[in-house]
């Protein structure tokens, strides 16, 4: 019988350690900031990632027909999904940062434009936005091109991948703007005032004083957005992007085996999101502040 103490110790190792008391003098040199103590233990939720991965491998290894065939068929879709998520996310961070700064801007014009963007975009379903960018936007570009007699625009051919990225960035950028706004506003005003009183410009103060502190606040919700984005990329399958979901539909249409196809697709998405979640959690522990 395993001793009682083993489980108790294991449980304890998962608990957060209380912060060390920092009132010794001379002060020990720390490589972290009080409040951002590093966690020493391995993230306990890795077991779920391992479990799902093992299940996937077992399915493919024990029943290569149909699972291995499906996997071979959809793997390029898997790559597209990952590419789409990562590329979109880089631009979403940029748009979100600009939008967030716009939302707190004192200039009424900038504030109005940023607020209008957020309010409008948040009010339209992502699927509708993606369809608009794929079908309506090219038509609009062509019409404008014809009106101003500019052949380059009049003969515009829609690139599904680029338009999908645009749709995702525009939509998620609005949510990200609100996250950044809240993060920046959560930093006490005195930080900005102190920085300005030393002669630093608004931008310098933002970059060197406010944003580094805001990162700590926004990291969890930003990570959350990343996982939501990863899942929402499945919507681009309706606008001619051959992502994981679309490849799954194509395979099902040819072989009529919905149960196996969608079980595998679901497991593939699950592995992606679970790994992303662990990565974000690792980032949170890694940051110095």
């Amino acid at each position: 019988m395993p001793s009682d103490g083993f489980f108790r110790n294991l449980w304890r190792s998962f608990q957060k350690k209380p912060p060390e008391i920092l009132e010794q003098s001379p002060t020990p040199k720390l490589n972290f900031i009080p409040g951002a103590e590093p966690r020493e233990k391995l993230d306990p939720w890795w077991w779920l990632v391992v479990a799902v991965a093992v299940l996937l491998v077992l399915l493919i290894a024990l029943k290569p027909d149909p699972y291995w065939d499906i996997f071979l068929f959809v793997r390029d879709g898997l790559a597209i999904t990952v590419e789409l998520t990562v590329i979109s996310f880089v631009f979403i961070i940029i748009v979100g940062l600009i939008g967030g700064l716009g939302r707190i801007a004192k200039n009424p014009v900038i504030h109005f434009i940023a607020s209008l963007y957020v309010e409008i975009i948040r009010g339209i379903p992502l699927l509708v936005q993606l369809i608009w960018w794929y079908y309506a936007a090219p038509a609009l570009i062509k019409e404008i091109g014809q009106a101003i007699h500019w052949d380059f625009m009049a003969n515009y051919v829609a690139n599904p991948f680029i338009l999908a990225v645009v749709g995702l960035v525009v939509c998620y950028g609005a949510y990200m703007a609100e996250i950044f706004r809240a993060g920046i506003q959560s930093i006490p005003k005195g930080q900005m005032e102190a920085s300005r009183s030393l002669g630093m410009s608004y931008l310098q103060s933002m970059i060197h004083v406010v944003l580094p502190q805001a990162i700590r606040v926004v990291l969890p919700p930003v990570g959350n957005e990343f996982i939501m984005l990863l899942k929402d990329t499945s919507l681009v399958s309706v606008v001619a992007v051959a992502d994981l979901t679309r490849r799954g539909r194509e395979f099902m249409a040819a072989h009529f085996n919905p149960l196996t196809v969608w079980t595998l697709i679901a497991l593939l998405y699950l592995v992606l999101t679970l790994v992303a979640a662990r990565f974000i959690s690792w980032l949170e522990t890694r940051r110095k502040y």
């Binding site: 900031i33 005195g190 005032e193 102190a194 300005r196 009183s197 030393l198 002669g199 110095k288």
Partner: peptide, 28 residues
């Protein structure tokens, strides 16, 4: 230009929380 020549000390200290004492002094 004026702020450069005028130092200010606040009631609530307002030290940059993510920087060490030394870095607080060197940033600006």
């Amino acid at each position: 230009t004026v702020r450069r020549e005028v130092g200010m000390v606040f009631q609530s200290f307002n030290l940059f929380a993510h920087l060490t004492a030394l870095q607080n002094l060197t940033l600006a």
